[in-house]
Amino acid sequence: MLRLENVHKSFGGIVALHGVSFHVEPHSITGLIGPNGSGKSTSFNVISGFYSKDRGEIYFQGKKIEDIEPYKIAMMGIGRTFQISEAPEKMTVLENLLLAPKNQIGEGVFDVFLHPKKIKKEDRKHLKNAFEILELIQLHDLRNEYAGNLSGGQKKLLSLGRILMSGPMLILLDEPTAGVNPTLIKDLIVAIKNLRDEKGKTILLVEHNMKVISEICDRVIVLDFGKKIAEGTPEEIQKNEKVLEAYLSGSSKRG
């Protein structure tokens, strides 16, 4: 589904990715973990085109992704959320959701005037879908609230909601449970599992909560200092010496 080969990325003197290679199986949930600053978000940014890589190759569904603009990568079927949830503040929760579907007829200037009926119909279809998603992310009561008034956790849920609306094949989730209240995390886990089991999606997620990782991940990839140091099932990873060492030393070395 997704394959990174020897990907390098540095920022001035800081080497964020130092020859990272890993792959993500179709219809799986893969965890991407590692101490702070190990290059997880940078990997996401390189995959989704927000950063251009210095070296290496990325393949999506067997096709090489060239250095193209992020929106084109999104159009190929890779959806992502951001670690710091960006939400258009002065747009309501529902507007946020309705923004997400790709290639809407009403996004064309002339189409707005030429096809008002089609647009209305399409909007109604999206709206119906949005109401279902609102239940799932439990933002139904806040549907007409400005996204700027949501809590950090609710914004995370909203970004998941947008992803669900836009329906990508591969979903990259950057810390989807950070700041989300524990009871909701359970629902989130169910929702993410459903994406794989019922919708056949492929998910790569960055997550710090090991409980979440062990509960939903089929495989886990561990990064440290921009390199893959381990890979395996959640059980294997939790017993891996190198991983334990990276996490233990992480706090002291990196402050």
Binding site: E69, Y71, P88, I105, E107
Partner: peptide
């Protein structure tokens, strides 16, 4: 829908609409 996109550009800069 065109209006929704331009508002998201105003609000979120480029990243969010690009990711969509």
């Amino acid at each position: 829908p065109f209006g929704r996109v331009i508002k998201s550009i105003r609000e979120g800069g480029d990243n969010l609409p690009q990711a969509m």
